[in-house]
Design a protein around this nucleic acid. Structure first.
Length: 567
RNA sequence: GGGCCGGUAGCUCAGUUUGGCAGAGCGUCUGGCUUUUAACCAGACGGUCGGGGGUUCAAGUCCCUCCCGGCCCGCCA
């Protein structure tokens, strides 16, 4: 176990992310006054926040170290916070949702994966790794963007995260931790911690054994080499400075060399260690609610809560632990390549389905199985129907009544949802008219279905098509525009010619489907042989969707020509 | 080793606060759609609610204990 920890620590910054469910403490009512059960967890959290009679705007926070790839796990905090924010706004509260980029943290190790400006995941080999290596130990904001576009390494990843939040329609305000120090917002916190250092040590030592009488909870940035240092030799709270020596920094079994410089730094030229910095953020930003992954639940939350009360003398925010989700059954890990980004998953799903995923109970550990996205979409569709009263399930309906309006951008009952796997079938052809016709035949579109609803419904076809291709699953068939290279027995060819005549005479899909059986029978063929030939001709595969009905929706001339094997 | 969270049908999940018949969707199977061919319809099958013990008229739900998984109890965040 401890062996692993080295590896894990190596990329702990971002990677292993959080996932899905949450901790109960968080949603437990304060002091047992009113224990009203809520169908939507965000209502329970909102109750708890309101019970504190908070000043407005109510501040909801999340945060992450901008270490490498912004992946879906990082969105737990943003999405969980979003639902609580929306519930409070609905109750007439003014809410500010912020997300800190903890970008004064030092780059401790070279990431194995990065995300470029478009959010695509790339390897370290695609950037100047040597340049990055020389910046080990410096704050992320002091390191150039490896892709050369943003102001810094930190800004690059903060921009990606912000872009993803925009894609999901979450109005989150990004805050640079470095800036909080630079503009003096953190001054009172640092001053408090360092002037009351005996107390600070005493409190933290309850949680961290390493804390001793020499421990100084402040890490200056070296004025010479720019790296975060660990050795403070003197503190002058009145002057607001510390003296330091730029010593080596040990990270796991690696050492980042210090330059030996001896200097003096102001409270703005350095940072607090995380255990103090987190509570400091609560104070500086006036945080009322913060969701966090279960890794914090037994570590930094208890100490942070204590530091907030005992050192900073502030009330910590309402907490909520969420469980992590797994991706395809495995922990999220960028180094292992088990990662999905927001843009990636939005190629496969509508944003509202993804929001739905995060509206589910945060306490439950979930698995996001890309090969079974149809299940997630089906669940969403059912959830949506429940909102409109179409599902005989009290619990689901109660949940949907509360959560659904926050999941969709706009509540519109006339909206049409094509079942995801059916959408994948429609994705076998690019012809929009064929898609619409097939959907009509299946009863998904009615005569009076408005054009906007058809447009929206068809957007799912593109998602489902991308899914079928990416998973290379049972729906990954493609109508062949060019005649495939097929070899057929002569009796099969004869049968196909007859079938072509039948189609040419003008029959609908059902009739064609029936005629395939009849034709096979007449020619003493195995039905499967004739179907097989059809699938070869149209899909260049041995199998496919219900053939007759599919052909009935295609252009008749095309179908006839293809059945006759004409180029 | 200690602590926290999770474990309900093959899969994805409700239900656990406040004890009251074990649930849904999907999948599977069977049947239907004049006819084995993945879209549609109906029905059926499917459960030791992780195991064991306890409390109770009654336990998925409460208590004890054990198993499995994740996390924390070093550093860092």
């Amino acid at each position: 176990m401890s062996d692993d920890s080295t590896r894990d620590a190596a990329e702990s910054d971002g990677d292993d992310a959080p996932d899905a469910a949450g901790v109960p403490d968080a949603t437990e009512p304060t002091d047992g006054d009113d224990t009203e059960h809520r169908a939507f967890w965000a209502d329970s959290v909102a109750d708890e926040i309101e019970a504190r009679d908070p000043e407005e705007p109510i501040v909801i926070k999340g945060g992450v170290s901008p270490s490498g790839v912004a992946h879906l796990g990082n969105f737990n905090e943003i999405m969980r916070g979003y639902f609580v924010a929306e519930v409070l706004r609905e109750r007439g509260r003014e809410v500010r949702q912020v997300f800190t980029s903890d970008d004064k943290d030092p780059l401790r190790k070279l990431p194995r994966k990065l995300a470029d400006t478009e959010g695509n995941i790339v390897g370290l080999g695609d950037v100047d790794a040597g340049a990055l290596g020389r910046n080990l130990g410096k704050p992320y904001t002091a390191i150039p963007d490896p892709f050369g576009e943003a102001d810094s390494y930190a800004a690059h990843f903060a921009n990606l995260l912000k872009a993803d939040a925009d894609r999901l329609g979450v109005p989150v305000e990004m805050i640079s931790n470095t800036e909080l120090y630079a503009d003096g917002a953190f001054d009172p916190v640092v001053e408090r911690v360092l002037s009351d250092i005996e107390n600070a040590r005493a409190v933290l030592s309850e949680y961290q054994r390493k804390v001793d009488g020499e421990y100084v909870p402040f890490n200056p940035v070296c004025g010479e080499c720019g790296k975060i240092t660990e050795t403070v030799t003197d503190i002058d709270p009145d002057a607001g400075t510390v003296d330091y020596v730029c010593t080596d920094l040990t990270v796991g079994d690696e050492t980042i060399d210090g330059c030996g410089h001896e200097g003096t730094a102001t409270f703005r030229e350095g940072k607090l260690p995380w255990r103090f910095e987190w509570p400091g953020q609560w104070q500086v930003l006036g945080v009322d609610f913060e969701p966090f992954g279960k890794d914090h639940a037994e570590g930094s939350w208890p100490s942070g809560e204590d530091i907030a009360r005992s050192v900073l003398e502030i009330e910590p925010p309402v907490p909520m632990t969420y469980e992590w989700f797994t991706l395809n059954g495995e922990a999220l890990s960028s180094s292992a390549g088990n990662i999905v980004t927001v843009p990636e998953i939005l190629e496969l799903l509508e944003p509202e389905v993804l929001r739905y995923f995060f509206a589910l109970d945060p306490r439950k550990a979930r698995n996001l199985d890309l090969s079974r996205l149809d299940q997630l979409v089906d669940d969403f569709d059912r959830f949506e129907r429940a909102y409109f009263g179409g599902v005989d399930d009290e619990t689901l309906t109660a949940f949907a009544e509360r959560a659904y309006p926050f999941v969709v951008e706009e509540v519109r009952e006339e909206r049409v949802r094509l079942p995801y796997t059916f959408a994948a079938v429609l994705g076998m052809t690019d012809d929009r008219e064929v898609r619409v016709e097939m959907a009509r035949n299946e009863g998904h579109f009615a005569e009076d279905t408005p054009e906007w609803a058809i447009e929206e419904a068809l957007e799912r076809v593109e998602k489902a098509r991308a899914w079928a291709e990416r998973m290379d699953n049972a729906y990954n068939y493609r109508l062949q525009v060019e005649m495939p290279d097929v070899h057929l027995e002569s009796d099969v060819e004869t049968a196909l010619d007859e079938l072509a005549d039948f189609v040419d005479a003008g029959h609908d899909g059902d009739e064609i489907q029936g005629e395939i059986y009849e034709t096979a029978k007449r020619h003493d063929l195995e039905v499967s042989d004739l179907f097989g030939a059809g699938y070869r001709l149209f899909f260049d595969q041995p199998q496919g969707p219900r053939l007759g009905e599919f052909l009935g929706d295609l252009d008749r001339t095309f179908v006839v020509k293809r059945l006759r094997r004409a180029e």
